[in-house]
């Protein structure tokens, strides 16, 4: 496959709470099996990846997910006419719904994707994760979805502490008393609205697993990682690859039962007695995905190959003890570049 593939990648916001795009591109660029022309797709004019010309060949602004699939398709048609895209790798949670919906249309245009289908995508939704676990035999902390404050009041007697109070999209607060639950409820209510989720607290070690599924039930790559240190936003500052068969088995079982196609990240809590609870499933590559390439299982490059129809054998080995340490770097550019992407939507 020694030719130049045209690949579009989103989530170029390599900032303090980073999107995975730049890491995905870095991994793709490193694969010796193919060359790529990388098209960056951005929402904001200041996404750092836009200005990394050694990684990104050309960039285009695309409409925010909330504008819907019609707008996105129209914009992609324009970009496709310019660039003859062969593959799109979307990396934002919020945009995935639209890209999955457009999958067939993109395919008829000659643009490939390697995404889960809508059923797979929705089954791991935060609000449905508990049922998902029950159905497939995974440990998932019990949760209760609250639609009104009244429902919380009714629960006062039966709650056990600590309990995690979570927003529909973001935010999670650990509460140790009913007072704290109420306070957290109201705080999250003000920010994210209803419903609010009360989730059983699970004590243990937090592990993240980057997984790539082939869509037929086979896990092509599984890399477990433990965060060594986190930022005050809860993001990984540094992390290390782990050797733990239980985690690999869990990820393999997850892929087998969901037939997941594409990359995903399992957030797992490993209890002291060794039980792995799935806390969340992110339906895309994590921001630390470059670590998979560094440890010997280049997940983004493997995804590209599978998307292009090449058979990819499951990896069998990775380097344990590989560490990533995230650092910041001030990229220098000029006002003219900012004006171009901001005003013309292209750079």
């Amino acid at each position: 496959m020694k030719k130049k593939l045209v690949i579009a990648v989103t989530a170029l916001n390599a900032i303090d709470s980073p999107g995975p795009g730049v890491a995905v591109i870095r991994a793709i660029r490193e694969c010796p099996d193919f060359e790529a022309r990388i098209i960056g797709l951005s929402y904001e004019a200041l996404e750092p990846g836009l200005y990394m010309h050694e990684l990104v060949d050309k960039s285009y602004q695309i409409p925010y997910p909330s504008a819907g699939t019609d707008s996105l398709l129209a914009r992609l048609e324009y970009i496709h006419a310019e660039e003859q895209l062969e593959l799109i790798i979307p990396n934002f949670d919020a945009e995935l719904f639209n890209f999955i919906k457009l999958r067939d249309k993109l395919h008829t245009m000659g643009i490939r994707t390697f995404l889960p289908d809508l059923v797979q995508f929705e089954s791991r939704d935060k609000l449905k994760l508990f049922d998902f676990g029950k159905k497939h035999g995974f440990l998932v902390p019990r949760d209760r979805v609250l639609h009104e404050f009244r429902e919380l009041k009714k629960m006062e007697e039966e709650l056990e502490y600590p309990v995690v109070v979570k927003g529909k999209f973001y935010d999670a607060v650990i509460a140790n008393s009913y007072d704290q639950v109420e306070k957290a409820f109201l705080k999250i209510l003000a920010k994210w609205g209803l419903p609010i989720i009360l989730q059983d607290f699970v004590k243990g070690t937090e592990i993240n697993i980057a997984v790539l599924g082939d869509g037929k039930g086979k896990a092509i790559s599984i890399i477990p990682m433990r965060k060594l240190y986190i930022t005050d936003k809860g993001k990984a500052w540094a992390g290390i690859t782990l050797d733990d068969d239980r985690l690999v088995a869990l990820a393999r079982q997850f892929i087998a039962s969901t037939q997941w196609r594409g990359g995903c990240e399992l957030e797992v809590m490993l209890t002291d007695d060794g039980k792995p609870f799935i806390m969340e499933v992110n339906p895309r590559f994590p921001a630390w995905i470059y670590l998979t390439a560094a440890a010997g299982q280049n997940q983004p490059a493997s995804l590209v190959k599978m998307a292009m129809g090449e058979p990819v054998a499951p990896f069998t080995h990775y380097e344990v003890g590989k560490i990533f340490i995230r650092y910041s770097w001030d990229l220098i550019t000029d006002i003219a570049e900012f004006q171009k992407i901001s005003g013309n939507g292209e750079l």
Binding site: E44, Y64, S71, A74, R75, F338, S342, G345
Partner: peptide, 15 residues
Amino acid sequence: KMNTGLMNKFGSKSE
């Protein structure tokens, strides 16, 4: 004004 963080204009073609 070319603000960041505002809705980019490459979106609402259909409307």
